[in-house]
Nucleic acid binder design. Structure first.
Ligand code: MN
Ligand code: MN
Ligand code: ZN
Ligand code: ZN
Lengths: 140, 140
DNA sequence: TTACTAACTTAGAATAATTCTATTATAGAA
DNA sequence: TTCTATAATAGAATTATTCTAAGTTAGTAA
C-alpha cells in the first residue's frame, strides 16, 4: 500500500490493519488527539478495536521516536505524530491545541543554580491563550 | 497563631486544623508535591484526613491564585505553593522537579500564524534534564 | 458565652484515564 | 504452507481524581 506502509515496513513492527488505520489517522494530523479521539476514529472502520491497541500502538510509536506525548492538558494526554521539536498553545476556553514551530533554545539560558544541579536535555513551551472562536463567543 | 493563619484569616476561607497543616506543609515548600505527598504528610498528624480534603484545599488555593498546578509530569499533577510565574525542570531519571526563576517572555515571540489564531495570555516552560544524583548513578 | 449555619471533613463510592492479563488471532519469516 | 513471535481483544485491574451523603465545626452574630 501507500507511503505509510512503506515507511513502517521492515522495522520490527507488525503492520496490522488496526495499526495502519491508526497510522493513517495520525499521518499529518495536527489536532493533537487523545487516546479516545484515536479510538473513536478507528472504531468506525474496526468496531472491535480496543483501547489497549490504541495505547500499545502509541507507545510503540513513542518508543520509536515517531510520536510525542503532550502534557499541556492537565486532564489527559494528547498525542502528536510530529516528532520534530516544537511547542504548543492551548486555548483555555475550548482546549484546542495549536503548534508553535519556533526554536527558542538559544534564548532559554538557565541560571547557574539550575545548571549546577541539572544537565539539561530539552525543553518544551506551553503557551496559553484564547482562540478566535472562543474570543468571539465571549463578546456577549 | 503564626504567619499562615494571619495570612488566610478573614478571606472567606475557613481555617480548619487540616487546612492549617496543609498550608504549613506547603509554605515555602519547593518540592512540588503531589496530592499523595500532601496526604501522606498530613496523615501523620491527622490520621483520618481524606484525599477529598487535600484536593478540596488545593482547589481552593488554586482558585485564590495562591497555588499552581504543574503538568510537567505525565503521570500525575504536582502542586506549587509559589504562584509567581516561573518555570520548571524535571529529571528524567528520578522525576525531581526544580524551579527556574527566569522570565523569558520577552524572547518568546510568536509567529503571525499563531497570533492570528490565538490571543496569548501566558507561557510555561518545561525543561528536561538529569539531576546530579542520577547522573552519578548512571556512571556505572 | 451561646446558638446558628454555611462551609468543612470524612468514608467510601463513582468516574475516568491508563495499564494489565489471559486468550485468541495473525503478520511476516522460513 | 507452516510456524511463531507479535499483536488484538475483552474485560479486569489500577490509579488519579471527583463526587456524595452524612456528620462536624469555624466563625459570625445575638
Ligand atoms: Mn504539535
Ligand atoms: Mn515551582
Ligand atoms: Zn477556543
Ligand atoms: Zn534525578
Amino acid at each position: 500500500m501507500e507511503r505509510i506502509v512503506r515507511k513502517y515496513r521492515g522495522k520490527g513492527f507488525k503492520l496490522t490493519p488496526q495499526r495502519i488505520a491508526i497510522l493513517k489517522f495520525l499521518e499529518g494530523n495536527t489536532s493533537h488527539p487523545t487516546a479516545e479521539d484515536i479510538y473513536t476514529e478507528i472504531k468506525k472502520r474496526y468496531p472491535t478495536v480496543s483501547f489497549a491497541t490504541v495505547y500499545n500502538t502509541v507507545q510503540v510509536l513513542r518508543d520509536k521516536g515517531e510520536l510525542l506525548e503532550i502534557t499541556i492538558d492537565p486532564a489527559r494526554k494528547h498525542f502528536d505524530p510530529n516528532p520534530a521539536p516544537h511547542h504548543h498553545i492551548m486555548c483555555t476556553g475550548c482546549g484546542r491545541i495549536g503548534d508553535v514551530f519556533v526554536d527558542y533554545s538559544a534564548a532559554l539560558n538557565l541560571p547557574d543554580e539550575v545548571t549546577s544541579q541539572f544537565t539539561t536535555t530539552g525543553n518544551h513551551i506551553d503557551f496559553y491563550g484564547v482562540c478566535n472562536a472562543c474570543r468571539t463567543k465571549n463578546i456577549n
